[in-house]
Simulated assay, not measured.
Amino acid sequence: MTKMLKISSVAAYTSLVILLLQLVLIVVSWVLTAVNPDIQIRSILGSEGLRWLFGTFVSNIASSFLVWMLVVGMCAGPLVESGLPRSIVAYKEATGYERMALFVALWELLVIIVVIALLAFVPHAALLSALGTLMPSSFSACLVPLVAVSLGIVAITYGCIIGRFKSVDSIFSAVLRGIGFVSPLIVVYVFAYEFYCCLRWVFCF
């Protein structure tokens, strides 16, 4: 909890700094274009700038990286709540029941790896591109979510076996807590990427 508070505090101040930089950029772009209309800079406060700002906000921040953060957070919750990482690190101290659960989770992970290999690494696999390449392909496009979801499934299986997850509600709660883990990063991302897009628009690059 203390670590989460520290992360939230850092994210809050980082977001504030980015927001202030955004305001400075808006004012500076307006002043420079007002003083010298021929300058190769666009003002966000002009009619064109306001249309761009409001019309492209959603498309600016909508990216694969944002989806990755959400999916990784959703899967990180069950991974942490299940206790799987701690059991792996402290395998020698694990009980017989926990070792049995680890064994099941390992076999499940191996099955997932085999299925992914059959879908991506054999000739004419379904997840390859039309040219038969891995980069780019459906496999490379979903690699991060695929790894996260695979680990999340294994963690949920382990947690159910040892009794950490006793109902669908407990699993769902773990998923929500996982989103809470990455929520500070999501807020910083929204401010930072919108600022970056504004910089590109103002300076025409």
Results as ranks from 00 to 15, higher is better:
residue 12 A to F: 14
residue 118 L to N: 07
residue 82 S to W: 00
residue 117 A to M: 06
residue 151 L to S: 03
residue 19 L to E: 04
residue 34 A to G: 00
residue 129 S to M: 12
residue 29 S to D: 04
residue 195 F to N: 03
residue 173 S to E: 14
residue 48 E to H: 07
residue 20 L to V: 15
residue 149 V to P: 00
residue 39 I to V: 15
residue 86 R to I: 10
residue 150 S to H: 09
residue 76 A to P: 00
residue 193 Y to N: 08
residue 55 G to D: 10
residue 195 F to Q: 04
residue 100 M to I: 10
residue 130 A to F: 04
residue 166 K to R: 15
residue 200 R to I: 08
residue 92 K to M: 10
residue 86 R to H: 12
residue 132 G to L: 07
residue 30 W to E: 06
residue 62 A to L: 14
residue 201 W to A: 01
residue 11 A to T: 08
residue 153 I to W: 09
residue 61 I to S: 08
residue 161 I to Q: 02
residue 95 T to G: 12
residue 203 F to H: 12
residue 55 G to T: 11
residue 33 T to W: 02
residue 188 V to W: 05
residue 175 V to H: 02
residue 114 V to P: 00
residue 155 A to Y: 06
residue 205 F to W: 15
residue 48 E to C: 03
residue 144 V to D: 00
residue 69 M to E: 00
residue 41 I to W: 10
residue 162 I to C: 03
residue 89 V to H: 10
residue 99 R to D: 02
residue 71 V to N: 06
residue 16 L to C: 11
residue 186 I to H: 01
residue 164 R to K: 15
residue 176 L to C: 07
residue 83 G to P: 05
residue 14 T to S: 14
residue 126 A to I: 15
residue 132 G to T: 11
residue 17 V to L: 15
residue 71 V to D: 04
residue 193 Y to D: 03
residue 122 V to E: 04
residue 106 L to D: 03
residue 15 S to F: 09
residue 99 R to N: 10
residue 41 I to M: 14
residue 176 L to K: 14
residue 54 F to Y: 13
residue 201 W to N: 03
residue 129 S to R: 09
residue 196 Y to R: 11
residue 45 L to I: 12
residue 59 S to V: 10
residue 35 V to T: 12
residue 191 F to V: 11
